[in-house]
């Protein structure tokens, strides 16, 4: 840092107490706990070491799985639940092929620990196909041929589904900004764009 700013600025200008008071309900929790010495030590239930059996709610079903703290959600889905639609590109960084929905939010399963999503509804790409019933995003990807090798496709489909849920009448620019977190190597973005645009226009 090259010295401090010339701009005069005042601090928050209130004591911690007033901060807690003024900051509303979310901060109240802090006040209560900081006042209660016995709560300072985390109880045993909040610390996990070694394998633990937990229940994940995946595609509407409660599934028992055994995880370690270091186990990723992607690993559990693929190796324990046989839900291999979410792909593992074996990268440590995010790439989108592992996209699932957690609490309705598009989430990279590969950078999410399984323990992070305990108790939250998880939806994988497989949930977008129920027998002959296909989610319009799946149908749209097929219609516009938004795929070649198909390896990035399921993650892209889920990202598109989550994106359209959030932005049902998205513009081209919004689509391009929203779906920039998914990588395709074959080069299928043109079809995917057309699919997303059509669904956005028709009310996805």
């Amino acid at each position: 840092m090259s010295g401090s700013s010339k701009t005069p600025r005042s601090g928050p200008g209130f004591s911690r107490r007033s901060f807690l008071k003024g900051s509303g309900a979310a901060m109240a929790a802090t006040a209560i706990v900081t006042g209660a010495e016995e709560a300072l030590v985390a109880d045993d239930n909040t610390v996990v070491s070694g394998p633990k059996e937990i229940t994940l709610n995946v595609n509407g079903q409660d599934r028992k799985v055994t995880v370690e703290p270091r186990t990723s959600l992607l690993e559990v889905l693929r190796d324990q639940l046989g839900l291999t639609g979410s792909k593992d590109l074996q990268d440590i960084y995010v790439d989108g092929a592992d996209t699932v929905m957690v609490d309705g939010k598009a989430t990279y399963a590969g950078t999410t620990f399984a323990l992070q999503v305990e108790g939250k509804p998880i939806r994988t790409v497989e949930s977008l196909r129920d027998g002959r019933n296909l989610d319009p995003v799946v149908t749209g990807f097929v219609k516009h041929d938004g795929m070649q090798c198909g390896y990035c496709t399921p993650g892209f489909v889920v990202a598109t589904r989550a994106f359209l849920d959030q932005n049902p009448s998205a513009t081209l620019e919004e689509i391009q900004k929203g779906l920039g977190g998914n990588i395709c190597r074959c080069g299928t973005y043109d079809g995917i764009t057309k699919c997303a645009l059509e669904l956005a226009k028709g009310g996805a």
């Binding site: 839900l83 979410s86 196909r129 799946v138 097929v142 041929d145 938004g146 795929m147 399921p154």
Partner: peptide
């Protein structure tokens, strides 16, 4: 449209 398109798009295609 590709005949295996639905399998690819819905994650049912096995690699």
């Amino acid at each position: 449209v590709r005949t295996d398109g639905v399998d690819k798009a819905s994650g049912f295609a096995k690699y």
